[in-house]
Design a protein around this nucleic acid. Structure first.
Lengths: 245, 245
DNA sequence: CGCATACTTGAAATGTTTCAAATCGGGTGG
DNA sequence: CCACCCGATTTGAAACATTTCAAGTATGCG
């Protein structure tokens, strides 16, 4: 459904955290979009690049990441439909990291010029987009907290909770389940752990029956217990309505 | 000097990454500021708070941090004169972390209303402020990379490099030295390590004569070696002119 | 069927933490 | 001006979470 109307996905996303007027909604839906399918494990935008458009994720999972010497990778963020992972490129001329496809990803490209024009015509919308980048940063802060001060078990539990809420907002959760189209190596690079250890912690979560993960589908069996274990609190996602979960 | 003209500090900071017109400069310098001295180890803004003003650091070091259960603390960012650590509060109604004074700090309070008015009158300035929050996020990304994928030695070396460059931009470096008015415990909470380990790694950096740290003054004796060890690259700070160092 | 990729397992090595105690240093009051 | 005190730093040793290495087993796809 969503791919037929890429911009309605964006509207839904923005409305999860801010209020839009009819006029603003229409203006967004009038943006020019060029869609493209990017195969898994391929860069959408690379480190050091300068771009003149933003990427709207329409389908699949993307991530931002940094590589460092000896081939170590840190995944900085995960992106699902509705996200604009490189909205910052509007005001930062050069990329300080890469944006890559974790699964196969359908992206919609939005020209900077069109977004800037929108922001000038609708100052409130400019604020909404700014806000979007601020929520992005709020998520970074929560991840830093995980990376710095939570053990592996809590880190993984926290990530599962976060993705649950973010996907739920976009209507991508049903039966307490969502598609998790990424590997254990990806998880380990997101959480600053080794893939071996992710594997063991995953089993622990399974044995306690907090989650089920089979065939790329994650099910949260006991939300209260999982959220409790992760010390998960949605405040940092800055949603308009607190999710029930 | 700086405290007499708090807003010239802000101008200097903004001009480190963007160009301002004379008119914009004057407009900034016309902002209303209320200054206040906050003693060390005291909150400037607390988690969950809603504010109607932003804090400009004028003197001393502040930090943003999250507390989690069992009293663990993660410091999310360090802030030095010229920084506006809570510029995000302009568009995010509730704080998802705290802002505290590490040393004694002089802050200037800027009413949201005055900043919003400025942004409406000068759309380009709005972009410059937005950009400022994006650089803030870029620093988070670099810290995440440290927390997730760099060992203790590199983490500490990287932090020292970053603060060197950021302070240099504000004219707070001389003789390859800057004031480091924070404790080893603070460093450990910023880098996701224990204070004991910070202490040992600090000694390692000293024994290799990359740095000197005495009486709250850090001197970088061998910049090239330190930057090399940290894999430090200034790109993520998005400065207008690449620093020579 | 065969190959590649992802996942799983075990055992040893490692970086970092914890605990506990000792030392340093700067400021205060006697 | 010295004695004292507190917070910050330093040290050693044992414990621990996590990594590395290496091999094995599933799983999916052409």
């Amino acid at each position: 459904m969503a791919i037929g109307f890429p911009l309605s996905l964006l509207v839904r996303k923005l409305e999860s955290s801010a209020l839009l007027s009819d006029e603003e909604r229409r203006a967004i839906e009038g943006l020019p979009v060029a869609t493209k399918i990017v195969p898994a494990h391929q860069d959408i935008v690379s480190d050091k690049e300068q771009t003149s458009r933003c990427c709207l994720v329409l389908e699949g999972w993307a991530c931002r990441y940094k590589m460092l010497h000896e081939g170590r990778r840190q995944i900085l963020s995960l992106h699902v439909p509705g996200d604009i992972p490189d909205l910052h490129s509007l005001h930062l001329e050069v990329m300080d990291h890469s944006l890559g496809a974790l699964s196969q990803v359908t992206v919609g490209f939005l020209p900077h010029e069109a977004i800037r024009d929108l922001a000038l015509r609708f100052p409130h919308l400019a604020g909404v987009l700014w806000r979007e980048t601020l929520i992005d940063a709020a998520i970074f802060r929560e991840w830093m907290t995980s990376l710095g001060r939570r053990d592996a078990y809590k880190r993984l539990a926290h990530l599962f909770c976060e993705m649950y809420v973010r996907l739920d907002v976009m209507g991508l959760v049903s039966d307490h389940s969502y598609r998790l189209p990424i590997t254990q190596v990806d998880l380990s690079d997101a959480l600053g752990l080794s893939n071996v250890h992710i594997n063991r912690v995953l089993q622990e979560l399974r044995h306690q029956e907090l989650i089920t993960l089979r065939g790329g589908v994650l099910t949260i069996n006991k939300w209260p217990e999982l959220a409790e274990a992760a010390e998960f609190d949605t405040t940092y996602l800055h949603l308009r309505s607190r999710p029930a979960a």
